[in-house]
Design a protein around this nucleic acid. Structure first.
Length: 537
DNA sequence: ATAGGGTTAG
């Protein structure tokens, strides 16, 4: 019992930022000012019968002060010092309740005594990009503030967030509102988000409709707009729709090599090689010469099929036609060979690239580091990581993600955290992919202290937890027998309007079943049907 | 946002 209590206490910081109403477990265990005399009681449905989950301590002296730094940002402490910034205050208000609709958010913010500014709105929209109700609430509230005006960029972010959650009616409403402002608020950037989100939501016809109606919003139906939509469709594995669009507007809109390359890419990704080749012929008929991008699409396809003989054929063809491979081409081939466990062949590509005088870039180095790590050559990977900086190529978020993921895969916990620290020193902003391997490692090794630290690190870096990350947490915690926490993350995920994946749900249910946690099972079942019902609306 | 960004777990 003691051990369990200790575990949960470690989550104090993270929990204190969460909604107590929604999550009684967290509230009860994590409120440091809790003065009730009763011992903090878990909601009965979340109680677990097993008590033998002891966490392993994980203390690295050299990282201690860094980790401490994050603890100092405990908002409960800040609250008592009354030194909150406006942004912190708004965040707290937004998180205090699980608002049922944006209107309630507006009401809550009205009593908040904060003044709206573009900077504040921009940052909060970023923090709540995975939580559309508070985002839209804040957005609506800000509009009512005297002297405040949304920038077009802020409008575009809001359009994007609504599209991400498939709130297409609200999204369109916002676009019309922008149009009514009559200040050129609706641009191709706006409509590009609209079309991409519609395509992502499998609403292909509506995406095409949006393109047809571009002039209604004062946006020109030019080649760039068409290429954007075709790209959006092609990326969603709907090369057919992209091609239809091409046929419909062929003649109305000026074509470019890019138009054909988007189509070729779409066909290659959809593994429709014949169609890709036909499009390449069509490209020639229109007077365009296939370029390095066109050929690279085919190379990528054959790499995916691990047909390296074909890859060589295309490389040969390029050579004959005087079309030189570039760093992207080389990266694709090297990466594929490395993934296919042909590490030596992959390194030959590196040598060939060098002898061709083609300079490696950050993405190339990231790939090289990735395949070396995958081949177990950690020291070589580390050497390349150091060398790239000497060559004047700076690591970016992908490079760091690769290094961190590799360190985690090899159970180098200390190294992984040091890399995260290094990233911070380099002012390289982490994203959710940075944290995924770290979180997974913590769940697996039951490093609850570090998990807690990582969650606060994410929050501070405006990385919100997405569906995939929640799934990872629930899965990982289930495997480590931390069912209460798994349940509470599941609950939080549903409360944020996300629909858990079936696999996640099944795994949690099975674990609960095995541990005879009938009450919890019932609750999770209810949450799941709630989430599904909401999705259908 | 015309091509490169690691399925996956034991």
């Amino acid at each position: 019992m003691l051990a369990k209590h200790k575990n949960l206490k470690l989550f104090r910081y993270y929990h204190s930022q969460k909604n107590p109403k929604i999550n009684p477990l967290r509230h009860l265990l994590c409120n440091p000012f809790c003065t009730t005399t009763e011992s903090p009681e878990l909601p009965s449905w979340i109680k677990s019968p097993d008590t033998q989950n002891s966490d392993e301590d994980f203390v690295i002296p050299s990282l201690a002060s860094w980790v401490e730094n994050y603890k100092l940002h405990d908002p409960t402490r800040l609250a008592s010092e009354k030194s909150d910034t406006d942004i912190d205050r708004v965040c707290k208000t937004l998180k205090k309740n699980r608002f049922p609709s944006p209107d309630e958010v507006v009401q809550a913010l009205n009593g908040c005594c904060v003044s709206a500014s573009n900077g504040l709105v921009k940052q909060i929209l970023r923090r709540f990009s995975n939580d559309w109700v508070p985002a839209l609430g804040l957005f609506t509230w800000a509009k009512t503030q005297t002297g405040y005006r949304h920038t077009p960029e802020i409008y575009n972010s809001m359009v994007d967030i609504l599209g991400k959650f498939k709130k297409f009616d609200l999204m369109w409403g916002l676009v019309r509102e922008m149009n009514d402002l009559n200040d050129g608020y609706v641009t191709l950037a706006t409509m590009s988000r609209v079309m991409r989100r519609l395509a992502r939501g499998s609403k292909y016809d509506e995406a095409v409709e949006a393109f047809r109606g571009l002039d209604k919003f004062g946006v020109e139906k030019d080649a760039m707009a068409m290429n954007l939509l075709m790209d959006a469709l092609a990326k969603e594995k709907s090369a057919e729709h992209a091609y239809e669009l091409f046929r419909e507007f062929n003649g109305c809109v000026p074509l470019s090599a890019g138009t054909f390359n988007v189509l070729i890419h779409g066909w290659c990704k959809a593994r429709k090689l014949e169609d890709a080749e036909k499009t390449m012929d069509e490209m020639r008929k229109h007077g365009f010469v296939p370029d390095v991008v066109s050929y690279t699409c085919f190379i990528e396809h054959y790499c995916h099929e691990k047909d390296f003989r074909k890859v060589d054929e295309i490389l040969k063809e390029m050579q004959d036609k005087g079309c030189k491979p570039n760093v992207v081409t080389y990266t694709i081939v090297m990466h594929a060979l490395g993934k296919a466990k042909q590490i030596n062949a992959a390194l030959e590509v590196y040598a060939k690239m060098k002898s061709d005088g083609c300079l490696p870039d950050t993405s190339f180095y990231s790939s090289l580091i990735f395949i070396l790590s995958k081949a177990g050559r950690i020291r070589d990977a580390n050497e390349i990581f150091e060398d790239m900086k000497k060559q004047g190529v700076m690591p970016d978020v992908l490079t760091y993600n690769t290094m961190i993921s590799s360190a985690c895969a090899h159970s180098q916990e200390e190294n992984a955290l040091k890399l995260l620290q290094k990233m911070e020193e380099d002012s390289c902003k982490p994203n959710f992919k940075t944290y995924a391997p770290l979180l997974k490692m913590c769940c697996k090794k039951k490093r609850m202290k570090v998990l807690n630290f990582l969650l606060s690190h994410m929050f501070k870096n405006d990385v919100s937890i997405d569906v995939g990350t929640y799934a990872l947490l629930v899965r990982g915690l289930c495997r480590s027998g931390k069912l209460e926490l798994a349940c509470s993350f599941f609950q939080e995920m549903v409360a944020k309007g996300m629909v858990p994946m079936d696999a996640t749900y099944k795994m949690l249910m099975e674990e609960l079943n095995q541990n005879s946690m009938a009450k919890a099972k019932e609750q999770i079942e209810q949450l799941m049907s709630q989430a599904k019902a909401r999705e259908c609306v």
